[in-house]
Each structure stands twice: as structure tokens, then as C-alpha cells.
Amino acid sequence: MALDISLDDSKQGALRVALNGSLDSETAPQLSAALGNIDDSVSAVVFDMKSLGFISSTGLRVIFTVLKAQKSRGGRVAVSNMSPGVKKVFEIVKALPDMTVFANDQEMDDYLASFQRGDD
């Protein structure tokens, strides 16, 4: 099983993280490394899970680490396009109340549109 990660920081203050594949105990370190030094200016991290087929607790931990870091400085974490299987995992650990949940691309895009485009 494999994971593709694509990061989009073209909006100032927001980081969009698109996940494609499986976020399990083998691939979670990859995501952890990719998100290792999120810039202090980022106040919203949005995980696009449209192409995420699977998440295990190791994967959840990476997202929770980001959530903790964001909340500690007033930021937020959002998730979008969860499949029923992925959503179930978040529900089991009662994590959804602590995050913003977008049901689809439209909701996510509307939210990201509220951020200014970055200089680069």
C-alpha cells in the first residue's frame, strides 16, 4: 500500500494537503515528514481525503499532532471528502467535533477562497 501526498500552500495562511492512497503504519511516517515544519503563518490545514482509501490509528496520530499544533496557536484543521470507511475511523475516536468537516470540494474551495492568494 502506498500514499501520495500533495501540498498546496498557494493561499496565504492555509495549507491544503491532498492524500491519495492508504495512510497506514507504513506510510504515516511519510506524512509526518512532509508536515514536519509547517510555517507559523499557516492558521488552517485542510486535508483533502477524496482519494484516501484507508486510515489506521498511526495515520490518525499524524493528523492529531497537526491538530494539536494548530489549536495551540489558534489555528484549525479541516478534513474534506471523507469516504464512509475513513469517516468511521474518525467517529470511533470521536475526533470530528474537534475539526471542521467539509462534505465536498465545493465547501472546501469556498473555505480556501477566503484566504488571500500568496505572493509566490
Binding site: S56, S57, F64, L67, V93, D98
Partner: peptide, 24 residues
């Protein structure tokens, strides 16, 4: 098992896997 009634940001992030196994 982790205390799921605590907000994620205040939780000790451990024991989640076991939690998952038990609930499934």
C-alpha cells in the same frame, strides 16, 4: 484506552489502535 471525552488537542495520543480494534 484513551479518554475520548477529552478534546483531541488535550489527549494523550496513544492507545488509539486498540480502541479501533475493540470497536470494530
Amino acid at each position: 484506552l484513551p479518554d475520548l471525552d477529552t478534546p483531541v488537542e488535550d489527549r494523550d495520543i496513544g492507545g488509539l489502535g486498540l480502541m479501533m480494534v475493540q470497536s470494530m
